[in-house]
């Protein structure tokens, strides 16, 4: 099964750029003590991710309706967000007010959610052939 589809790749690129921009904006705002701006930034970042997820997820399903309960997009989001978060600290780009411990905690708790999602994905795979729902394949 081709899991990394073209639309997932476009989503990953958009998400990567968004996450880097968010990280930069966050660290910059905190460093300059523009604490109010952090809220605005977080809201913009939320809507940006919602929109790219909606757009590329819909296009992906229209192209080939893989029965993965959204796990591929979730995994890519988790991987990129947390990798960028950790790398941000390793490259010393973080502000004084950010904590690496918090980044790890997010990765751990989100990781637990991802594992639960993965279990649902495995259960759904039993109802599929090459990722396509058996019910819809010959409809």
């Amino acid at each position: 099964m081709k899991a990394f589809t073209t639309n997932l790749m476009y989503f990953a690129i958009s998400f990567f750029l968004g996450a880097v921009a968010f990280r930069y904006g966050l660290s910059y705002s905190l460093e300059c003590k523009y604490f109010d701006f952090v809220w605005i930034l977080a809201i913009i970042y939320f809507f940006f991710n919602f929109l790219i997820g909606w757009h590329f997820g819909k296009k992906d399903y229209e192209s080939i309706p893989l029965n993965d309960v959204g796990f591929r997009f979730h995994f890519v989001t988790y991987f990129l967000f947390n990798s960028i978060g950790i790398l941000w600290f390793l490259l010393d780009l973080n502000s004084y007010y950010e904590s690496l411990r918090l980044v790890y905690l997010i990765a751990i708790f989100w990781g637990i959610g991802l594992i639960i999602h993965f279990i649902f994905y495995l259960l759904e795979r039993k109802k599929s052939i090459n990722g396509l729902s058996k019910e819809d394949l010959f409809e």
Partner: peptide
């Protein structure tokens, strides 16, 4: 046809 191609 895309679905049929996907399953080979």
């Amino acid at each position: 046809l895309r679905k049929f191609k996907h399953v080979g």
